[in-house]
Nucleic acid binder design. Sequence first.
DNA 1: ATCATCTAGGTGCTGTATGCACTTAGATGG
DNA 2: CCATCTAAGTGCATACAGCACCTAGATGAT
Lengths: 139, 139
Amino acid sequence: MQRRGRRGYGAQGGCRRRIGRFLEPCLLLLLHAGESHGYELLENLNRFGFGGNPADSSTIYRILRSLEERGFVTSMWSEGDSGPARRVYTLTEEGNVYLDTWVTDLEETDRILHSFFSEYHNHMEIHHANDGETGKRKE
Amino acid sequence: MQRRGRRGYGAQGGCRRRIGRFLEPCLLLLLHAGESHGYELLENLNRFGFGGNPADSSTIYRILRSLEERGFVTSMWSEGDSGPARRVYTLTEEGNVYLDTWVTDLEETDRILHSFFSEYHNHMEIHHANDGETGKRKE
DNA sequence: ATCATCTAGGTGCTGTATGCACTTAGATGG
DNA sequence: CCATCTAAGTGCATACAGCACCTAGATGAT
C-alpha cells in the first residue's frame, strides 16, 4: 500500500491521470511562450478551442496562484502601465519541467481515451452487425 | 447570463468538457455489452488501460448509484448465485443515449487535447529552432 | 466449530476542482 | 460624478475521487 499521496489526487505534484478541462497545462504552455497576466491568459485560452464554453476567470486566477505556491511560476506587479495593476507571471525552470510532465501525462490520457473510442466503435460495429443478422436493426 | 445549470458542472445531465478519469462512460460502455455488477465492472475497467492506476471500488459503486438515480441504468439483486448477493446493473435506453452524448463530448475533448499537443509541439519546434540560431541548443 | 479469506457492496471523511455570484479598484470617457 | 472597461480577487456550493473503514455471505483450512 504505497501511500503515494496525502489524500485525493495531485496533492503535492503528481497530476495523476485526470485532466478536467486541463487548463493548467494550457496556462503553462502560454507562459512558456512568454510572461503574461491572468486577464490576458484568459483571452488566449480560446486558442485551444475553449471557445464555446470559456473558462471562468476565478478558475484561472486560482490556478495561477496554485502554480506560484508550488514554484512553477513567479509573479510581480507591473506598475506604470495603463489600466489597473497587473500581476505578471513568468514560468520557472521547475514550471518548464512540470509542463513536460503534464504533456507526458496527457499523452497517456490520450492513449486511454483512444482505447475507449476503439472499444466503443468496435463494439458498436459488432452490435449493428448482429442487428443486421437478426433483422432487428432500428437505425 | 444563461444559468444553464444549478451549480457546478454536470448537475443534471450535461457533461461539460470534463473527463477526469472518465470512468462513467467506460462503465456505460461495459454495460452496453451486457448487464453486470460493480465488482465485475471494476475488473473489466482494466481493458481501457487503467492498469497502472486502477479505480477505487468506492468510486465505481458511487458512479453506478448516480447513474441509477438519473435513470441511465436499472439494478436488481441477483439471488441464487454463489458468493454474496450482487446488484446487477442493466443499461436503459436513456443510458444508451447518454453514452452517445458522452462519446460526442469526449471526441470534442479529444480535439481540444490535440490542439494543445499541436500548439505544444509547434511552439517547441520554433523554440528549439531559435536555440539553434543563437547556438544555445541543449539537446 | 471457528477462523481466515475471498467476494461484493457500501459509508464517512477529506482534499481538490470548478462554476457562479459578487467585490474591489484603477483608468477613461461622457 | 458616474458608467464602463480592465484586472484581480473572494465566498459559497457542488462535484469528483481516493483512502480508511464497515457489513455480510460463502468457502476452505485447522
